[in-house]
């Protein structure tokens, strides 16, 4: 549901390989992928199949050797440094496999960090109220309202992942990219996270989630497979994310 058919993101012929000394290790060998606005897509693949690599390229954190990524029809490799920073800051929210929160900031600060980026003292002071407001809402939404002044190392893995999700949503991104958001969590905690994704999707959020777990992938509206460096068309799960509740 919620898909309006227009492609928000489209990967065309992505090729990426790593060099180990003199040997070339091909990871992506021509990935084609279209993502409709409002879609909840799962990319399923074995460990080492290049899922993270693909997601990094889609999020503008890495560059492909060949091919291009179109965001709303614009090639992100042609972005200026400023446009690319804006893309990372406001267009895309990235949830990392290993949370990657800043230990020196507390939960609240970690969540509103993306809103602080690029703002001077005056800019920040004028935005602070609304930013803190939104951050508190998001933290509430991920169920950590009572922990806002805790530091990341005082939280469990699942709690950290939820903080990371709240941070990714801070600037109301067009696109949420999640790299194995449940990979390091037990099943029940993972279910909570997935329920959260389902709720987000229902509210219109476009999501791309990477996983190696079939059961996790089944929560998405569409699944594709990444194997041999290429995306194999998968199947659609008609009503998958509608049956979960927010955890």
């Amino acid at each position: 549901m919620n898909c309006d058919g227009s492609a928000i993101l489209s990967a065309q012929g992505l090729v990426k390989s790593y060099w180990l000394g003199t040997t070339q290790v091909p990871v992506l060998r021509g990935v084609n992928l279209d993502l409709a606005r409002g879609e909840f897509l799962a990319i399923l693949g074995a460990s080492g199949s290049g899922k993270s690599t693909l997601l990094h390229i889609l999020g503008g954190l890495d560059r492909p050797d060949k091919g291009r990524v179109l965001f709303n029809g614009n090639d992100i490799s042609s972005f200026t440094a400023r446009q690319l920073n804006d893309y990372r800051n406001r267009r895309v929210g990235f949830v990392f496999q290993f949370y990657h929160l800043l230990d020196e900031l507390d939960v609240l600060e970690n969540v509103y960090l993306p809103a602080m980026i690029g703002k001077g003292l005056v800019g920040w002071l004028t935005h602070k109220r609304t930013a803190v407001q939104r951050a508190l809402e998001l933290i509430d939404q991920v169920g950590l309202g009572h922990r806002i002044h805790h530091r990341p190392w005082q939280l469990s893995g699942g709690e950290r992942q939820r903080v990371a999700i709240a941070r990714a949503l801070m600037n109301k991104p067009d696109l949420l990219l999640a790299d194995e958001p449940t990979g390091n969590l037990d099943w029940a905690t993972g279910q909570g996270i997935l329920a959260l994704f389902g709720a987000l999707h229902r509210s219109g959020q476009t999501i791309v989630m990477v996983t190696h777990d079939q059961r996790v992938a089944s929560q998405a509206t569409r699944t594709v497979f990444l194997a041999d460096g290429q995306v194999q068309p998968g199947h659609t799960n008609p009503s998958s994310s509608n049956n979960s509740k927010i955890g």
């Binding site: 440094a81 990372r88 990657h100 800043l102 980026i117």
Partner: peptide, 8 residues
Amino acid sequence: ILKAVGES
């Protein structure tokens, strides 16, 4: 992390 969330 900072660069990933858009720092220049």
